[in-house]
Amino acid sequence: MATSPSSSAQQARQVLGSRLDEIRKHAGLSGPALAALCGWHKSKVSRIANAVTPPSEADIRAWAAHCGAEDQIPDLIASLRTVEGMWVEWRRQTHGGLRAIQAAFVSLYEKTRHMRTYSCWLLPGPVQIRPYAESIMRTVQLRDGLIDDVEAATDARLERQRYLYEGNHTYAFLIEESVLRCTVVDNDTMAAQLGHLLTIGGLPNVSLGIIPMSTNRTHWPCESFGIFDDQLVNVELVSTEVTIRQPREIALYDQRFKILSSQAKRGPDARKLITKALDALA
């Protein structure tokens, strides 16, 4: 199971083990007693609770059933799947280049009806113009010493954008004003990108919110993330990409999006902030 300097799958496994142990204690069962009911070796309950041995779905079903917690089985299994698949090392993921990563998201964008994206570093992928996207991926390719498939990767990223204009898809983009001021590309490209953002903000299926730098923050910025319907959250960190499918954690990101969204400017006020960033480039 992959680990990273910023976050650890082992820690996530420990959280799941602790939760299972709380269920056992609430049922009034000792570890050996639960193991006997499940037909396991007497030490297995302790190994799972202390994150020494990862449980299987069958283990979780048996554990919860014998503790009278059948109603928690779906959420526990979702937690297990999150532990198993949430941490993907960036290096391992990009081993074959950047195109495969970008292409892998096309089908997800196609089946997602409502996407919400919060961005604190870069403009979100669905609104990026080709020069902006290509420049960002070129930086990653050179920084990490990857094979040069930047042009193909850019094509794959732009392929997702067609769902802005076709099908029954809606988008909510929430962007920190500092992202508009962060010239990670040359000024001409950034100016064209901000102009494109103004156009995207006028689409009928798009909600665009800009959080001003001057806002008296009730909640500080967090990592950039995307919520795909209510099924999946994708979070990109420095060294890993996190995929979250656990309902309770998806709900936390949904809550954070709503809180941050309440601090955003929209409509003419959002356009003014984008226009000010454009004027600053000049």
Rank of each mutant, 00 (worst) to 15 (best):
L278I: 15
S18R: 08
W90T: 12
C222G: 11
I274E: 04
R91N: 08
L197N: 02
A100G: 04
Q231C: 08
I147G: 15
L237F: 08
R116Y: 02
E57S: 07
I274R: 04
I244F: 10
P221R: 10
C38A: 15
K25P: 09
A27V: 13
E70Y: 00
L252A: 07
I250V: 15
E84H: 06
S214P: 05
I244W: 05
L237W: 03
V233N: 07
L29Y: 05
L158V: 10
W87G: 10
G125C: 01
R138G: 15
A270V: 02
Y253T: 05
Q102F: 02
L158C: 12
G201R: 01
G209I: 03
Q193V: 04
K42I: 02
Q246N: 11
W90R: 15
G125L: 01
T215N: 09
G96I: 01
S262G: 13
Y165M: 10
R99P: 06
D59A: 09
A69D: 11
P124A: 05
H196R: 02
I129C: 02
L198C: 06
R143E: 14
R81H: 14
A12E: 14
L20F: 09
R138S: 14
L37D: 13
E166W: 03
P5K: 09
A251Y: 00
V15C: 05
I244M: 13
Y118A: 03
R245I: 14
P221C: 13
E176Y: 04
G28I: 07
R162E: 12
K111H: 11
W220L: 00
R24Y: 09
M115K: 03
V238R: 07
S4P: 03
S18Q: 11
Q10L: 08
D229A: 08
W63K: 02
R160N: 15
P221N: 12
Y253P: 07
T94C: 11
N234C: 13
R162M: 10
C182P: 01
L108W: 07
L76P: 08
R138K: 12
V184Q: 11
V150E: 11
W121A: 11
M213V: 05
E249P: 02
D254H: 04
E57P: 03
L34W: 04
D230I: 06
N187Q: 13
W40F: 13
P131S: 12
R91I: 01
Q72R: 06
L260D: 13
Q102W: 00
I136A: 12
D71V: 07
G96Q: 15
H26M: 14
S4R: 03
H66Y: 14
L108I: 12
A277P: 01
W220A: 00
Y171V: 01
A49S: 07
G85P: 05
A12Q: 13
V83H: 06
V184R: 10
L203P: 03
G97E: 09
A172S: 15
I101Q: 12
E241V: 05
F105G: 09
V242Y: 03
D59N: 14
R47H: 13
E223L: 09
A156R: 01
D254W: 00
V52T: 14
L80N: 08
R116T: 04
R162Q: 12
I129D: 08
V242N: 04
R130F: 06
R13M: 14
A12V: 10
L232Q: 08
